[in-house]
Write a protein that binds this DNA or RNA. Structure first.
Lengths: 218, 218, 218, 218
DNA sequence: AATGAATGAGGTTTCATTCAT
DNA sequence: AATGAATGAAACCTCATTCAT
């Protein structure tokens, strides 16, 4: 017997409401009762869909990151060449992070929790997205090397670093209370990376434009 | 009437013990009683030195970051030219982060808390170190530009980004369970940045060495 | 959705048990756990019915005084003439106070708390009963004046004073460890008042009997 | 070796300060530290003069009531005839209560505590003043009977009742937030009592004046 | 399936009192 | 004599989770 559509829809509804409340109040300060209120259901009903508060927390994070991955996947698929694929990833990241600005503390709480809990599912979920991005980035980096845009390098290492850097910029943006434009910061970084990795030939073509961006700042 | 040396020493002792327990157990799961036990004092005594658990949390973070800043300051002062000053910062960061690997979740919790609490002292403390690093970085970047190593650029923007990137690499290292050597990752990143920013003349001198590091990965 | 009968009954049950424990131990020394034990429920359950210990305290007092008012109301309604109405009030008071002898310290604590707390509901509740008694007394006093029993006087002032005097006698009785019969004391006082207020004509009819009571004491 | 004057003076100073703080904050909410602050001494010093907080509470009450008794004693001694002695008591009571209006909740707390504690000194102290007033009142009542002003009656019972009534009026005054003039209320009551107790002869002389007061109210 | 009444472990903070200096 | 640092018992209230209906 398949799980009814209703059941799935309701589950997602709870996740959506929980995301709201968790984001606003934080994981620890959020009471299941508040989530139930937000979802317009009884407190006990939440437990029909999620065994524990922790499981619901994981579901919220999973929903966010799955959506993020899906967006990137479709945008990258729609782009035709490696360079516009890279741009698609960057744009998706900026949009995702900007739309998640209010949820930033919760992301930190989730990461902290993932590092803390004995339940390996948390860290696994965090790294699923990291690896998705890393593999995608490495693949594109290799293509750019092959296409003669980038000089030869360790694409896997590069991509792994990039994934962390992306989170770091987001973190800075949030901690500094969004006092600088996130998209400009990403472009700035991309220019710097670009200048560092371009082959001499590519530098002739693109170097000036990238250098100009670095001069302009954000 | 000056606060006695004993009082100050005991306060620091409590901070040290609290740092241990908080790191191991996490801010929320830590009970004041456990900190008191670790410090070999009564629970009430903790409250003679810190008004609330939150204040103690702040004191722990402050102690860490103040020590970090002091280390950087002295190392940078000891270095004689801009390039070795940059290396001093990088080495200090790597050492700090490596020594704080076990404390990483607590740093995340602190950041999350800083973004959540209405007490502005938390975010202020976070950003004090950020600004310290940013200003230091911007100053050095300007010197490198003037010395002809780096092409002209927005040094403030560059330094601000770098500060975030540094945290991001640490975050990646921790979330991926320290599966790569942190120092190598930092060197990799420095090479990439270097290649991007070098003047054509400097590239002639250093480019090959940096490109080699990128090829080798970490 | 009406609150279920069960909920109301349980609430009253908690009030009853709380009244017992509060009376025995005093407001401050009483632990919610003890009330829960007395009611045969969990500590948390108490908080399902009362937001705070203070609110429960108010509920206990309210229950007592509401019952007191109800008794007086019904007895006064049952009496046919002003004089027997006055007697009904006096008898009700004596019975109430005698049945509340063990609770006297708690009444004092409640009054003290009412004067202390910023929550105006406490003093309001205290004065609700006072005004009920005052208005009733003033009404009857006026009737007795009109009927020619009492000489003319300020009935409102008289009734207000009487209400306080009644509490004062109770207080004396309690502080002196009930070393005199409360009912006799009330009768004594009533005789004294009577003698003071009677019209000359009424005094001819009743004076001797009242004077005899004063001679006899209590 | 006699206790030094300094020691006695300091003890009284602490009592004075404790009276202030207790009155303002209430017995339970008052911290020894606050009393020490008010007295400009160290917390530990309080314990050099009083074994416990409870003992200090008793000392405060004792100081108040002893002063009250002393005032009455001297005023009564200064009055020459029974009627002006009665007036002296009434005036002293009104003045005492008016000056103690702010302290009323603490008096209630003290009475409640006296009824609650196993330490008999509390109730004993309360009743020492009661008996002082009762004996004084009974004595004067007997004199008034003998002088032909009052009809014969049980003077001891009368005086005992009067003592309670006096507290009751004060209680009413305080609970009703001093919404009526205390001195007028006392005069009103005295008139009522007078009218009740006067001999027929005395009534001829004084009755109209007293009846007029009852008509005027307060 | 949905609910919400019941629970009790848990945790921060307070504060009277002690006692070494 | 005076102090204040140290203590730990105490108690309110919260809230995740359970389970009978």
């Amino acid at each position: 017997m398949p799980i009814s559509v209703d059941k799935v829809a309701k589950r997602q509804d709870i996740i959506r409401c929980a995301a709201d409340v968790f984001s606003r109040t934080g994981y620890h300060a959020t009471k299941i009762q508040e989530i139930a209120n937000a979802a317009g259901i009884g407190k006990g009903t939440v437990y029909e869909y999620f065994r524990t508060k922790e499981e619901l927390f994981l579901a919220v994070y999973d929903a966010w990151m799955s959506a993020y991955e899906a967006v990137i996947e479709s945008r990258v698929a729609a782009a035709t060449d490696p360079i516009s694929k890279v741009d698609a990833i960057r744009d998706s990241a900026v949009e995702f992070y900007q739309s998640r600005a209010e949820q930033a503390p919760l992301l930190l709480e989730f990461w902290a929790h993932a590092l803390r809990t004995s339940n390996p599912a948390f860290l696994a979920r965090v790294n699923r997205t990291r690896h998705f991005l890393r593999d995608l980035g490495a693949d594109l980096a290799r293509q750019l090397v092959e296409a003669g845009w980038f000089a030869d390098m360790d694409a896997a290492a590069f991509a792994q670093l990039e994934t962390g850097i992306s989170d770091g910029i987001f973190l800075a943006w949030v901690l500094e209370q969004r006092s600088f434009p996130l998209d400009k910061a990403y472009t700035f970084r991309q220019s710097m990376i670009g200048l560092g990795l371009l082959t001499p030939e590519a530098r002739l073509a693109l170097g000036d434009r990238l250098a100009g961006k670095l001069k302009r700042g954000f």
